[in-house]
Amino acid sequence: MVRCKSLSKATWYFCSFELTWGISFAGSDSTASTMQSFFYLVLNNPAVYSNLKEEVDRAQKAGELSEIVTYAEALKLDYFQACLKEAMRVRPAVGLGIYRNVPPEGVEIDGKFYPGGTQVAVNGWVLHRDKTIFGDDVEVFRPERWFERDAKLMGSHLYQVRQSQKKEKGIHSNLLDSLVVAVIFALGVILPSLR
């Protein structure tokens, strides 16, 4: 499951490409992909969609949602959060391994020693299907697992973004334009007249 590589000149070129790519598209591309996964999985599971609407309607009636929904309000919708995490688990937006440096003194992983200067990665699409972490039905989109199993453990095994990127994502600078793009990407909107 672990892939590793030593840093060569080519790698550095690749890293700078990756970085540029990341800066230009990390906002809209991965958000669009995640939103598509979310709607695809939720809409294909009518029971989940109905639970989700119920939660949103209940919050709306209780006056827990502003006219423009805030991040803090969205975080309080537990079932919605479970659906979003489950969508990211089943269809992560990042398709390749995200490389991390081993410590300078090297590290032993699964019986094999990797010297300092090596980068290692696992692929989210594989890691998110680890039955020891997520349960036996890893292929199934089932938000309920986030209430039944150790959510903290499962959350720590979601391999979506680097820690540093998680922080960047907290900054809302590119959020608006990335959202507009994402909504258009995510929903192939069809006009009623074309139906």
Partner: peptide
């Protein structure tokens, strides 16, 4: 994304 999804669902 969290905010937009809820907005859309609502």
């Amino acid at each position: 994304m969290n905010k937009a999804l809820i907005q859309i669902l609502r």
